[in-house]
Write a protein that binds this DNA or RNA. Structure first.
Lengths: 196, 196
DNA sequence: TTAAAAAACTAATAATCGTTAGTTTTGCTG
DNA sequence: CAGCAAAACTAACGATTATTAGTTTTTTAA
């Protein structure tokens, strides 16, 4: 009867992935049922399995895509001829933009990764650790070049990554808060503080 | 046979609550079963119901206690004779300390609140919103008194709260990173930035 | 020591879960 | 229009869930 609409160029699997990301973000992975996902697709639950392998696979696909996007951007930034501060700013802005334009997927990646199955779980954590380590290295370079204060690099990176992650609550202010204003304010806060 | 050990002065319900917080944090509320909790208590699942009302009630108790602790502290800070910056710093330090000494409970409150049942869910969100609003007011005072930059108060509070929330990842560095160093670094970062 | 209360147990409930099997419908291609 | 593949459907599976009922054991108190 009802058929899964493959909206133009986007594949059926991708449209399921998008709806899954929205559902997993709103209700959590474990609390989301395949029947709910099917309802959102306008289809019965078993029909989904013509297009996907399993519920776990959906989560894996979402997390892997997000992780790959960040990984790719970090490589670009590292390869560029910029100061450590400029690089750091670029990373922060990319995190914010990813959060704004792939909201559901980034949130799912941030919150539901623990339900990944092996070996995907280990891969994901390894990739994440690697990302953090390279970001810490960037801060260290900034300190060595005396453009950054003599701070604890790990704490600085933890603070920055946590702050941008918190943009998941940005939705609340969506009407009253322009995205550009938000981005610039947060970047300035994280780089230069708030005390006059 | 085996009896739920009420360790000294702590009630049986409280010892269940503590184990529940640990379990809910590690596995997530929905993925945690009463059988797992019972196993952690050294007891069969139905025995738990001699001491608690339901699984939902456990989550509610955990979230309510955390929310009340923050609410109480905010009242104290508001009532004190301190500059906005000092007040802000006290709030940040309290968040960090709460995260370090009631780790499981704060994490559960931060991540699993969405599974609260009404009317507790609405109450929790209302309390949270109220807390944020009063923190925003504090930042506004700092701006009016020209001790804080002309920043966007909402973004500043969002950034601060998100950063301290990220301390859930502090565990990873527990061995290599002293708690006091962490606290001071994060406070300085959030107040004065990292650029020299 | 004995009666009462607290808290454990076993067994079972109805509901929901992801997923499979088997069948029917849909939509494209010749 | 016939045939074939893709994708939908219904029905059902075994597993797991929170929770209840009813019973037995343990602890407390007189």
């Amino acid at each position: 009867m009802a058929k899964i609409k493959s909206g133009g160029t986007i594949s059926k699997k991708d449209s399921i992935l998008k709806k899954a990301a929205t559902l997993f973000r709103a209700r959590g992975f474990k609390a989301s049922s395949m029947r709910e996902l099917a309802l959102a697709m306008g289809v019965e639950a078993p029909s989904l399995y013509n297009h996907i392998g399993s519920k776990s696979e959906l989560l894996h696909s979402i997390c892997a895509r997000v992780a790959d996007a960040f990984q790719k951007h970090l490589l670009e930034v590292e390869a560029s001829n910029e100061t450590p501060i400029e690089k750091l700013e670029k990373l922060i802005r990319f995190h914010i933009q990813m959060m704004l334009q792939s909201f559901d997927e980034v949130c799912v990646s941030n919150h539901e990764w623990k339900y990944l199955e092996e070996p995907h779980l280990s891969n994901f954590l390894q990739q994440r650790k690697n990302y953090e380590q390279r970001m810490i290295l960037l801060v260290k370079h900034g300190i060595d070049e005396k453009v950054l204060k003599d701070i604890h690099p790990q704490v600085a990176v933890l603070t920055i990554l946590s702050a941008v992650r918190g943009l998941e609550f940005w939705q609340r202010y969506k009407k009253e808060l322009d995205a550009t204003v938000l981005e610039n304010n947060m970047v300035n806060h994280l780089l230069t503080g708030i005390i006059k």
